[in-house]
Amino acid sequence: MDPASPAIPTTGPSAWNIANYLTVFRLFLVPVFGWLLLVDAGASAAYRWAAFGVFAVAMLTDRIDGDLARSRNLVTNFGKVVDPIADKALVTMALVGLSAIGEVWWWVTIVVLVREWGITAVRFWVIRHGVMAAGRGGKVKTLLQTFGIGFFLWPRSTLPLPHLWDALAWGLLGAAVVVTVVTGVDYLVQALRLRQTSERAVRKRAERAERAQQRAAREGRPQS
């Protein structure tokens, strides 16, 4: 019998897994959704319903890939970074498209997108210190955005009581804007704290202190 092989250290789940495949699939749906929404400047009821269908499928994959990643231990740094990017790309396409066809005020789109992509930039800013996963507030924000945008996508000409649906859509989107701003500030605070308290930050401070002591010793200065 061959001698037992040494244990191979585990390195975590591979980035090539079903949860991440769904995330990438959601990214590919973004241009399809955008094209369907903008056909005839959003005036075609059939294309609007098709756009809503693609949007719904994309958001469903967001829920499924997260559940799969957690239940099957498939959480990876790739997924933590790309999943929110896919979500933001879809929301960006939806809000820009709805603003372009005159159904959502541009200032709402700008506020939401500045926060969304600003936080994405912050995630990359602190990625050497750790990965910032989505928190509970971010999930509430995503839920409000999803339903608010979803109601805006429904063609009003095919609905009874269109003004009621407009009020519901604006109510959800307005709540989403508030939560979006609040959670954005919270993420920024977390990022600043992470850069101060991460293992990398602590190690860097220790290295700087050691170098300062060595310089002081070479120069014959008393050490503090």
Rank of each mutant, 00 (worst) to 15 (best):
L161R: 10
D62A: 03
D40H: 12
A86L: 02
D186N: 11
P162E: 13
L159T: 01
L188Y: 08
G220Y: 12
D65M: 11
V82L: 13
K139D: 09
D87P: 03
T61F: 12
Q223Y: 00
L95V: 09
G34V: 06
P84S: 06
H163A: 15
V75Q: 12
R195T: 04
Y47I: 00
I85Y: 08
D2M: 09
N17F: 08
F147V: 14
D2Q: 11
D83M: 01
L172D: 09
W170A: 14
I119Q: 05
P84W: 03
S157Y: 00
I8P: 02
L159Y: 02
D65W: 07
A100V: 00
G174P: 03
S14N: 14
K88S: 14
L164I: 13
W117E: 08
P3Q: 14
Q214N: 07
R208D: 13
L90A: 08
P31G: 10
A46T: 15
E207S: 11
R63C: 01
A43N: 14
A209D: 10
V140R: 06
L188K: 00
A7C: 06
L161F: 13
V177G: 10
Q145F: 10
R221I: 01
G97M: 00
R211I: 10
G34H: 07
P222S: 14
T10M: 11
L173C: 12
M132H: 02
V104S: 05
A175L: 15
A50G: 12
A15V: 06
F55K: 04
D166H: 10
F25D: 00
R193I: 03
S224I: 08
R70F: 05
V57Y: 01
M1V: 13
R72G: 00
A4E: 15
K139L: 06
A45F: 08
P6T: 13
E210W: 12
F151L: 15
F52G: 07
R63T: 09
W125V: 03
L172A: 09
L153G: 03
V182T: 02
W117T: 04
D67R: 13
F147A: 07
A69N: 06
V54T: 05
R63P: 00
W125R: 11
S44L: 12
R136L: 14
G220H: 09
V81K: 11
I127E: 07
L37T: 03
R136T: 15
D186M: 10
T180W: 07
R70K: 11
V24Y: 06
Q190Y: 00
W106H: 05
A69Y: 02
